[in-house]
Amino acid sequence: MSTKAPSAPAQVQTSSPQWLQALLLLAPAGIWLALLLVIPTLLIFQLSLVPDIKPGDIVNPSGLDNYLRIFQPDVLKVIGRSLLFAIGTTLLCLLMGFPVAYWIALLSPKRWRNLLLLAFVLPLWTSSLLRSYAWISILRPTGVLNTLLTSLHLPTLDLLNRSPAVLIGMTYSLLPYMVLILYASLEKLDRRFLEAAADLGATPPQAFWKVTVPQTLPGIAAGSLLVFITGLGDFINPELLGGTSSMTAARLIYNQFLGATQNWGFGSALSMVLILAVSLAIALLIKYGDKNASSL
């Protein structure tokens, strides 16, 4: 940015406040990120290298034992279950959320849209714990669902304390996020694209798959990622609805920090692995999103 021209003093005068301005604008977010994201992550990483650390201990990085423990079959099984719940929830949210978001964004009367969205987001205002307890009430053997099924002379379902109940609870918790993000994406969809597709001979389903879905792909990816990440961290739903075999990675981490064993090192190692997995997912999204953005 340096100039050799005689006008240099003037340049300095204007460029100095410019970098100062940039610094001032970026500083709050930068400090925030450093304090609340970068430093804690580094601390967790440091802790993850320490075997047998207790609260209050002096930290001495020394090894990868904590990481090796992750490869025990039981721990791998736990991580696998977490991934399964998170992926299953993501797929269910996508399957159920897309039609809803589509309907609200493209088909519902315009003046009702905000109200419909609000209605859909309303459950988010209650405690997630309360929602899980509500599902216990609904799904238990003599609960609301089975009372209804019996009155319709249908066979009852024993869902509570099994994996389907976890998926139901998690999908219910995360569906509003998916719908909101998909709505934002679908709302921006240029309707002339749909007309153009119809004009070129595409039936509504063909137009949906060849235009609507590709056009909203960034939204689909963002919504899926959010649901996946949040689902990966959820332990309330698996815990309350999943029965005896419901240990998830998040719960295992919780146990290491706030449970009886207090193994912060292993908990940190496990956290690092999850952070890495999630970062990888985000990196893929950014890469993918970029490719898509270049065409916009």
């Binding site: 039981d74 419901s246 009886a260």
Partner: peptide
């Protein structure tokens, strides 16, 4: 003691993950 506690926890994880 910590090693014993971890043994308990290990079996518990085994029990709740299978």
């Amino acid at each position: 003691d910590k090693p014993i506690l971890e043994l308990y926890e290990k079996y518990w994880t085994k029990l709740t993950s299978s």
